[in-house]
Amino acid sequence: MSAVLAPGRPLRAGPLARRAARAPRTAGRILAGTATVFLLSSLLTFALGAVSDANPAAAALGETATPADIARLDHEFGLDRPLPAQYGSWLVHALGGDLGRSWFTTVPVADSISAALPVDLSIAGLALVLAVALGGAAGTAAALGHGGRVDRAVTAVCTVLGTLPAFVIAIGLITLVAVQLRLLPSGGYVPFGRNPAQWLRFAFLPALALSLDAAAGIARQLRSSLVGALRENYATGAVMRGLSRRRVLLGHVLRNAAGPAVTVLGMSVPMLIGGAVVTERIFNLPGIAQLSLRAAEQHDVPVIQGTLLVTVAVVLIANLAVDAGLYALNPAARRGRPARAGQEADR
């Protein structure tokens, strides 16, 4: 409306129309980028197997494998074909949900992964919720009390958390909550589908241990962008119009300040999954990392490749979700790829 009323300014399409016109093009570019990244990652994952001298006969039969066994099993798993052909068929099958069979147990890799993945996804999901809740609350509190005691406390805690690996936090939580206070079990797992309450009992500590690092990142980012946004004219204007502190914060400032925090949240997804490896070992969870560790000990290449590829897919999907979230928050951010604020540390 203001465009119509403002004198001397040419008529332009409204923000909604502009947003609609720009959306498909940006979406196409982002999808093309994501597809390329997935292809490159799959190439790297495949190359990892191609450069190794591990073979199915050695993995399954160990020292007793004869050259005839090696040749037979190589042929059975298609390893006697040229590498490009192997890569092509592996990728095509993988896109169709078939990741091959384990060299060791000949169980389909996709079955093992789909049994293990829900453990990680449910715990990482809970960790994300905790990270947003804790980091959001801490960051907002610090920004509102900018320069005060709360602010300094939040900053100090965030700095300390940034120097600790997730597994040290996990050990601390086990010592305190499970061993000393005996409030929650120190390890084990019950699927969400079987008993949600029990699932929460087992999943809470690992999720909390995973989330604290991400929460610290979100709190730090949200604090600094909120401090900036609260000084903007529109925030002062909203206060002058008599809006309550709450409405200024929730309706105006938070929406604008949330962008960088969402980016940090998206970057913490690979970190959550990477941290899950160690957390799974500590809390004895039957997740994808345990699968990958066991496969690494047995040189079971298809399982190693499968877990890596699925992890990449999960991370990329999470990145797309973050891009969509950023777009919903602020279409102007979509002119280029969003600056991945901060560093990729602590993954």
Partner: peptide
């Protein structure tokens, strides 16, 4: 970007398992 999507620990485990 592709390298940045790979989690450190999982990738290192994979590399060790293969190499």
């Amino acid at each position: 970007d592709a390298l940045m999507t790979l989690p450190f620990t999982l990738f290192a485990i994979a590399a060790v398992g293969v190499l």
